[in-house]
Amino acid sequence: MAVFSRWDGKRVLWVGLGLVIAALIGLALFRYVGTLLFAIFVYYAIRPLYRHLDRVIDHPNVTTTATILFVVIPMVAVAAYAGVVALRELDQFLTASDLEAYRSVFQPYLRLTQEGNIDRLREAFRGGSGGSIADVLRQGVPDVLGRLRSIAGFVFSILARLFLMLTILFYLLRDDEKLRRWFYESIDHDDEIVSFTESVDDDLETVFLSNLVVIAVAAVTAVVTYTGLNYVASGGPVVGTPVLLSLLIGIGTLIPAVGMKIVYVPYGLILLGFALTTPTPLWHPIAFFGLTFVVVDTIPDFFARSYLSARSGVHMGLVLLGYFLGTLAFGWYGLFLGPIVVVLAVHFAHMIFPALVSDLLGE
């Protein structure tokens, strides 16, 4: 081909060096692909807020630092705390029900919420197990130190990934315009490539930001509603696991047509069954269904879903498949990789594939 006829030894050398550098960078990032994808997700989710603040502050370093300190870190902390509370509620639910056999599936995560050997050692001192203090120390301290070493390694791994995520996010927010200009100048502002990348960029922001808003609004509304319902209820709480149920409801909003009903309708029917077969008041399931339908199920639809459907250029059913198949194929980070692949595929099919086919058929 004419392209390769212009490739002399110097160009081949530079291309080979570039491929080696790209391979080394790819290998380094592949080990932390989940962290990278999470940083990309957070970047698109908070980019509109960052750009709004940047217009006011007009200092990229200050704006980026303020965005991370006052938005990202609290958001990650709240999500982590909600996850821990949800794990505790899940552990209690599995233990109290006939599903205790399934605890082994979640054991690596449930172990984080359970009491450690430090509490057991304290109880040994307090309860007087019949041995001397030296015996207790000999038996308990090595085990405790081993657990502490394991916990320290786990905590360090989490902190290292958090630091890496925040570093990637910082430079994405601050230097994305410089990166975009460098790329467009490198390709000599090719109209086809510029149009493709801009369309992908816009839709990724819409998908990630809008779905995050839908999930957050639904989950927070559900937590407030169920906590308030439990507070005013007599004869025990109406919702036994409010945080866990609220998180599941938030995730359920991603499902088209059915939405969060796939979560709260079965739960409400269980409450109704308890009310009909036990002394549980009948108003518990009635109040649960009424508040959930009016408050929890209505607000996200009117507040966020219409915004998502109006702005996104990608069919919501395909986005759902991206979330679902991405998680099945790649694990937890597929939750972020799946939608990226879907957006790339949709715009490639619309903008690039027809031109390629036309060129091939024309030849």
Rank of each mutant, 00 (worst) to 15 (best):
V3Y: 12
P142R: 08
L36C: 09
R6A: 12
S97G: 02
G16D: 03
V136D: 08
Y333W: 12
D297P: 05
W332V: 12
P279W: 07
L212R: 08
V76E: 05
S199P: 02
W283Q: 04
V78H: 03
Y50Q: 02
G252N: 10
F106N: 01
S97L: 01
P285N: 03
P48W: 07
D98V: 05
F163T: 06
L27M: 13
L159Y: 09
A82L: 15
P108T: 03
S129Q: 14
G273N: 12
L69K: 01
S104L: 09
L360K: 10
V207T: 07
A82C: 10
W7P: 00
I215G: 07
V71F: 12
V15T: 15
I151T: 13
I46A: 06
F302C: 00
A216I: 06
N117S: 11
G317F: 07
T197Q: 06
H315N: 15
S246Q: 05
A66R: 04
F154A: 14
R181E: 07
I255R: 11
F336L: 03
F303C: 01
V105S: 07
A96T: 07
I286T: 01
V319L: 14
R311T: 04
A287F: 07
R51T: 11
G362A: 15
Y264M: 09
M75G: 07
T113Q: 04
T253K: 15
V62W: 14
G228A: 08
I262T: 09
H347F: 13
T292M: 05
I262H: 02
V220S: 08
D301C: 05
M165R: 03
P142Y: 06
Q114E: 11
E185W: 03
S132D: 12
S129Y: 15
L269N: 00
F70W: 08
D202A: 13
G240N: 07
V72Q: 02
T67S: 10
T35F: 03
G116C: 13
N61W: 13
G127Y: 07
F324I: 10
V62Y: 11
D175I: 01
L360W: 10
F125E: 08
K10A: 13
V265P: 00
L360G: 01
Y44Q: 08
T64F: 08
D119N: 13
P285M: 02
L321S: 09
L337Q: 02
R51H: 07
R126H: 11
A28R: 15
G128H: 14
V105I: 14
W283Y: 14
R138E: 12
P339F: 10
L110W: 01
D203C: 04
S210C: 11
V214M: 11
V214R: 09
D202C: 00
P242S: 04
Q92V: 00
G259N: 14
M316T: 13
F330L: 06
A329S: 08
V12S: 12
F41Q: 02
V341D: 00
T253R: 14
W7E: 10
V343Q: 01
I249V: 13
V220D: 02
V220Q: 04
D98Q: 09
L87M: 08
E192N: 06
K10G: 07
S210W: 11
S312Q: 04
F170A: 13
